[in-house]
Write a protein that binds this DNA or RNA. Structure first.
Lengths: 166, 166
DNA sequence: TGGTATACTCAACATTGTTGAATATCTATA
DNA sequence: TATAGATATTCAACAATGTTGAGTATACCA
């Protein structure tokens, strides 16, 4: 910080409230902007399709439908339709588990992997355009703080999931 | 920063790429979490309804449909349906412009204002739960950096809108 | 007055999401 | 070995959102 202030050790409410306001605005803008990018003729994916495919791309090998549903925060019923469409586009393959025939396994295809790579490249270019002008020290600090945000968010998500199961 | 490093003045690609990865994960979690909150029986709003109502709540008085559509990044056709549902819930009122009878004006009702206030209070509690454990210095720095992010994002949004019109 | 632009809604369709029922398969037990 | 119950997934019916293109009403200009 450039200037020393008389700050409490504790978080002041007003800072967190301002962060709430800021996150409201950034989230909406970021989401809309990303949807627009995904709508490009090169990609032509919905947000849900992207995040579903992303998880598969980051998974080594096959993924069980129910695991995929939990990881992407969708219901099993909703996921069925999403995977149907990814299948139409030949971005994933669907097979049955060899031993437990109830389980449906999904796996990303090379084509799906290539598409995810393309999209993330385009996304990185957007990020560079948006944040490239900031000093390196700022972006490094931002990364550290975002890590803290992710940890905090995961924590309250776990709590609410625990509550749902209880 | 805790440790001095040999860093360029320029942004390193790897930091921005890590931020891209982090934003992907945080955005999805945050969105899903917020949708879940809005789905609560007290609120019962969709994400789109919330952001539409939020803009009206932050507007003084009436708002033209086309302005509202642009501000919330929706097409006019999509907005018509969203406002229909807000109307059903008595959260907004719809009138015609007195002089230019083509224009449809929308205004939030006291009930709508109260709902937005309730939701934002619940949201603030979530933010406190997620980030309250961070030192005050961190949250203050985070706020500053998020302001920078918002500026950067608005800039590239403007550029893409300019491109669309061109 | 007539023609064109503007503001919005409507219609038809695709995608996503919900809930609850249906189907298939596995597992444990009598 | 039947079979009852648990588990994994899909299907069906519906609501909300989003897209595009057509339709309607109003304003403005010549």
């Amino acid at each position: 910080m450039t200037e020393s202030k008389l700050v409490d050790e504790m978080n002041s409410s007003s800072t967190l409230d301002a962060i709430e306001q800021m996150i409201l605005r950034i989230s909406w803008l970021a989401q809309r902007q990303f949807i627009q990018l995904l709508d490009d003729e090169r990609f032509n994916l919905t947000l849900t399709q992207f995040y579903t495919l992303l998880h598969l791309a980051q998974t080594n090998g096959e993924c069980k439908m129910s695991d995929l549903a939990e990881a992407t925060q969708q219901s099993a019923a909703a996921l069925t339709g999403v995977v149907d469409r990814l299948l139409d586009k030949q971005l994933v393959e669907r097979t049955r588990h060899e031993r437990d025939r109830r389980q449906v396994m999904v796996q990303v295809t090379p084509r799906g992997l290539a598409l995810i790579a393309e999209i993330r490249q385009a996304r990185r270019e957007q990020i560079h355009a948006a944040l490239g002008h900031l000093p390196a020290a700022d972006t490094e600090r931002l990364l550290e703080l975002l890590e803290g945000v992710l940890v905090g968010m995961s924590r309250i998500l776990e709590r609410s999931e625990a509550g749902r199961l209880a």
